[in-house]
Amino acid sequence: MDLLPDSAQQEIVDTTASFLDDVLPIERLRTGDTQASRPDDGLWRQMAELGWFGLAIPESSGGVGLSLVEEILLLRELGRRVGPLQVLATVVAARVAAEAGDEDRLEALIQGRARAGWAEPLSSWVRRSGVSGEIQIYDGDGVDFWVVVDQDGGFLFDAKPLPYAPHPCVDEFTDLGRAVLEDSLPCVRVDSGPGLFQVGALLVAALLSGVGEAARDQSATYAQERKQFGRPIGVYQAIKHPCANMAVRSEAAWSQVAYSALALRAGHADAGFQISAAKHLAGEAALENASANVQVHGGYGFTTEYDAHLLVKRANVLNAVAGPSRFHLQRILELEPLAEALG
């Protein structure tokens, strides 16, 4: 049993972190240029060359042949830097294509020739041969596919012909849009049960862990630099203790995300339970830490000149997708928990 990365996994973390610090540092968003959030084609191809979109796809299908454990390490780093949701969507879209045996689309996604946006039904969602209902789409403007996962499986929709209405998002670095589907035929469909939804929730939880950790680290840095009453504010327990609480929430969230990824990979019966716990805890850690981080920054936290606002906004977006806390808590109440832990 080992909940920490081994040396090969640590290398993935280090490589990912230094690549992202180079090309997608959180500072890129300070200009307010909302286009800066979206990787251009060159950068997207670089990500594909690093294997990001097929980490967990078998080598025989053109992927890297690792697992979702490596994927959560990647997405945690991305979450720390408020990275584009297109990466999440494309990773999951590749899984949908792989499960459907759609080799052409799988190859296009893995190789970075096609991108996906993340989509979710807003309310009732009728699945027959076609699908009807209104969906909300994240980072899906101008992409090739919209990916939807639910309790019954997953879909890819060909995004180009579908109506798309952009909406301003609370998080100005997430493209938000809506579309009304009327008996629309997905280009890829798998009816494989809740597995894809679980993977989606887990990957979003990894992003949320990163957001919560970034808030913790921003606060710790600021509390050492900012002086009031002649001393760094981190000296005062009114600041120090909220920072410590952020560390506690982040440790709980990430440990649970890591545990649930391992439980899912190992096929444990309680994996669904563990993932719901991870999504709930990571969402809470991200939202609470990001809010406390604004408060630690005082007036500067209320401006767009510092990065604190980015984390609050992204935490809200990620908290709302792949099932909000309330949904996962209901699942936790219904599922038989902790068979493993209770013996």
Binding site: A253, S255, Q274, L329
Partner: peptide, 10 residues
């Protein structure tokens, strides 16, 4: 239940 799960993971 979720927090107890996290306690084990931690």
């Amino acid at each position: 239940r979720a927090e107890v799960a996290a306690m084990r993971a931690m």
